[in-house]
Nucleic acid binder design. Structure first.
Lengths: 214, 214
DNA sequence: AGGGTCCTCCCTCCTGCGGGGGAGGGTCCC
DNA sequence: GGGACCCTCCCCCGCAGGAGGGAGGACCCT
């Protein structure tokens, strides 16, 4: 059962969302709030899986409320509700820890699906927001690790898994190949990246940005 | 009715996804492909709403196939299928125009929900991918590593050096102590941080922010 | 049709690593 | 004085990890 709270200053919106979510067997609305302050208190009291939060609210707006909720209760994923798909809210909301956006006139089916996916930890964005975000990805800070560019796709994949701290046998199981094959890939990684053992391989992976901490 | 095609070189995957999607009333699998070239032809012929595409395929890989599909038919939204939700394919796939990622062992319900949302134009990312993309936006979210606060000063020091990829003998030389002593500290680190080997210790160090890449 | 790359898997050999013990000396504080 | 830590060092032992080979099949490009 996924537990949800809804925050909006418009009673009609509150009513609508509660009705839709309450009609779904695996979703449950455990509370509603009419402003940001109420929301923060409500989340602290009910510890919901998902919070639907309007951007525009009295006393404490949706962005600030999202930041407080995320800071105090990381287990609660926030979906920001907007009337229009305004880009300027998007970045700030994401920085505040929001997991997704929905328009207030979203079809019932999509609302339900979105809540479920966000509860599972997914990030849910509209198409325009996506492009906006991708611009930042290109600026990802990576250190030059000599040899990473000469890795084959499979080797890169193995590196990622090894960098998670898995043993050869575990890597083999995860990739569905033999342990001997993993050893071959690892040896090749050590040679190409000029490292000595898998611990140094983990270091190289973090330096190269193949994995990101956090 | 949402029309879907599936592309994967593994018949079992093809079969599984087709069965799941076919059992849903508003989804319809209108074709399958075993490699990228087949996929491009299939999309041109059927104009589906969503294409589920494996990253690893013969002849034309999933990334390249995605780029061609998106260029020729922007109305078709692509979901990339991966074994992991965080690997070197993610960024390239998004640049190629993919709308989302799903693990091959995704639960049926989430698969169906994901397909519907992507068909509607949403961007769908897993939790780890989301963090990856938000790495530059989000302000360095240091993960809580249980036990790191119970380390003695010397242990913390050893951890930092070990996280540099040094062997026990090298750590000993660097700290001016015996190798046996280093082993004792390392064993203690493994125990307190609940890790198995020094590779996992390196991971823990990066997660805890004891060392910082870049 | 052939050369090159990649992925896959097999073998032997040996070292470094980590588990599981024990033990002495140092400081600090009760 | 007697704990309670912390740092230091020692032994034995089993094993995963890595070196150094070889080999077959699939694919790609020319």
């Amino acid at each position: 059962m996924t537990r949800v709270v809804v925050a909006d200053d418009q009673p009609v919106v509150l009513e609508g969302f509660t009705t839709i979510l309450g009609a779904t067997s695996d979703l449950e609305v455990v509370g509603t709030a009419r402003d940001g302050v109420e929301l923060v208190t409500l989340v602290a009291a009910t510890r919901p899986d998902v919070a639907l939060v309007d951007v525009r609210m009295p006393r404490l707006d949706g962005i600030a409320a999202t930041a407080r909720v995320r800071a105090a209760h990381p287990g609660t994923h926030v979906i920001v509700l907007t009337t229009f798909d305004l880009d300027e809210y998007v970045t700030r909301a994401l920085e505040a820890g929001a997991s997704g956006f929905l328009l207030k006139d979203v079809p019932a089916a999509r609302l339900v699906e979105g809540v479920r996916l966000v509860a599972a930890g997914a990030l849910l964005l509209g198409p325009r927001v996506a492009r906006h975000l991708l611009a930042d990805v290109d600026a990802a800070p990576r250190r030059e690790v000599p040899g990473v560019d000469r890795l084959t796709p499979r080797e890169r994949e193995v590196l990622t898994v090894v960098a998670g701290g898995l043993s050869n046998a575990e890597v083999a199981a995860k990739l569905g190949i033999g342990e001997q094959t993993v050893k071959t890939h690892v040896s090749e990684l050590l040679r190409k990246l000029a490292r000595r053992d898998r611990a140094q391989l983990v270091v190289a992976a973090y330096e190269a940005g193949v994995v990101v901490p956090g």
